[in-house]
Simulated scan of single mutants.
Amino acid sequence: MLCIFLSSLFGNLLTCFVIYVDKSMHTVTNYYLFNLAAADLILTFAMLIEVYDRVINPGMAMTVSFYGCWLPFNAVRLLICLLDTKQLVNLGKRWRLLFQAVNFNSWISSVLNPVLFSIMSTKFRKSLKNVWNIKIKRTRK
């Protein structure tokens, strides 16, 4: 399990680093790959949390929300690759609605993860409360 974690960490960080640093890699396709690598990093750390059994509920909830949000998006992308253009055009308005719904659903993942983490992690809530109190005390003085 450690080998999988380390290889995923190294590979995804390397992908993000190369795309970020090399200006010639700043294309739409590479931004998509960057996004996938970042999502894989999140999943990698969720897997690590699950394995060490410290915070299994937030890790599992984040993993399920990740798959629930991104699986339909990737399934539609696969359909785009498999179907020819005439078939997609014939679907017309239904296809556009499906595509918009799936795109919206994929962005929900960005909202769900912090909410789930803050709801389910008592340590995070305590730290957030401490930071909030420090910030309020500074602004009042």
Rank of each mutant, 00 (worst) to 15 (best):
F17T: 15
T15V: 13
K23L: 05
A39I: 13
P72W: 01
L83D: 10
Q87M: 05
W107A: 06
M25A: 15
L88E: 06
V18H: 03
R125T: 05
L13D: 04
L91R: 15
T122D: 06
V102R: 01
N12S: 13
L78C: 14
S121D: 03
L33R: 15
L128I: 03
N35R: 07
I136F: 08
L9S: 10
R138M: 07
V102C: 00
L43P: 02
A38H: 02
L6I: 13
S24R: 14
R140K: 10
S110Y: 11
T63D: 01
N113I: 13
I42F: 03
I4M: 05
D84V: 13
I49W: 00
F99V: 13
K93H: 08
R140G: 04
Y31I: 05
S8W: 02
N30H: 11
L14G: 06
A75T: 15
L79Q: 12
V55M: 03
V64K: 12
M62A: 06
N12V: 01
L78G: 09
L91E: 11
L2N: 09
L2Q: 14
F34D: 14
L71H: 03
N113C: 05
S7A: 11
L97M: 07
G68R: 01
W107F: 14
F117V: 05
F99C: 12
P58E: 03
N35C: 10
L78K: 10
V102W: 00
Y52S: 09
F10E: 06
S65Q: 02
V28H: 04
N133F: 10
M25Y: 14
L43K: 06
L9K: 03
P72Q: 06
S106M: 05
R125M: 07
F66N: 00
M1R: 13
S24D: 10
L98A: 11
L79K: 12
L98S: 00
L91Y: 01
V111C: 07
T63M: 06
N35D: 12
A38F: 10
W107S: 07
R54V: 14
F73H: 11
L33Q: 11
G92R: 04
S7H: 01
K141V: 01
W107D: 07
A101G: 08
L91Q: 12
C69F: 02
T139K: 09
V111Q: 03
N103H: 12
D84T: 12
V111P: 01
L14V: 14
D84K: 13
P58V: 10
C3F: 09
H26M: 07
A101H: 02
L2I: 13
T63N: 01
K137N: 12
N35H: 09
M62L: 07
G68K: 00
R54A: 08
G11Q: 01
L128Q: 04
N105L: 10
I80L: 04
V76N: 02
F124L: 11
A46E: 11
F34H: 14
I108P: 02
L82Y: 06
T15K: 03
R138G: 09
F34S: 13
P72I: 01
V89W: 01
N130T: 12
I134F: 08
M60R: 15
N57L: 11
T29C: 02
N105W: 05
M47L: 07
K129W: 10
S65P: 01
G59F: 00
L33D: 04
